[in-house]
Amino acid sequence: MGAGHGHALHVHGHSPVHRAPAHLKILGLLGFMLLVVATPGHWHSAFGLWLALLLTVVVVARVPFRWLLPRLVVEVPFVVFAVLMPFIAHGPRVDVLGVAVSESGLLAAWTLLAKGTLGVIAGLTLAATTSPPELVRGLERLRLPSALVQIAAFMIRYLEVVADDLRRQNIALASRGFVARDPRHWPVLAKSIGALFIRSYERGERVHLAMLARGYEAVGERPTPSRATPDGFVGKAERRRRAGGPSRHDNAADEPVWGRAAGERPVDHSPGRMPS
């Protein structure tokens, strides 16, 4: 549960790679990955070239290998699968160290391993040289639908808040004599995670209401306008006003938006809710 810090993957620096615009880096990563994925498995020298290219970027970015290597462990599930492949695949067999393995499986395993490793290193390099807010701005500049950009932005903003909630909840659990030792305690952990989920969900609703209260309107959101403004979340009415159109605040059409928003709160559905 120590993965709380939202910026844990960023390595502070001022290299040319750090300073490059985020949207170019995202495009670079995407292009590189498409190239790597499209490379046939038996073009061994091409993979050497991709690795050399990638390591050059890592060196220029001054991302320490000591930082990079331990983080490659995210690849482990794929490595396990790659190791199994030569044994479970069909087709002609070849002998490797006295063990008969599938030839096509061996090639598939090598391809998976090579492409996976290149992908993980490339992804880590982007994460190391680009702070999360920059990444979000880069995605925005690439015209990713604003709803997706906002979800990403909120995730970054609230990850630490939720991690903090979790930490305080664990302290409260421990204070009542709870120690998670064996699987018999898993139901308690599951319930506390469930409670955390509900609290985060309700916090999301409160944030949404607070945004609505400041003129935000996400219904039928179009991806374009918010990029033009320095502050990310500008309501449609505000954008229309800036564009010279009639303001939504002028007519009664606003009413259903507020009414629906208030009615969305699940706590209000409960007949058993007691007043303070």
Partner: peptide, 11 residues
């Protein structure tokens, strides 16, 4: 604790 929501988590 100050925030009862930290303490109350059961159904």
């Amino acid at each position: 604790f100050q925030d009862p929501d930290d303490q109350l988590f059961m159904p």
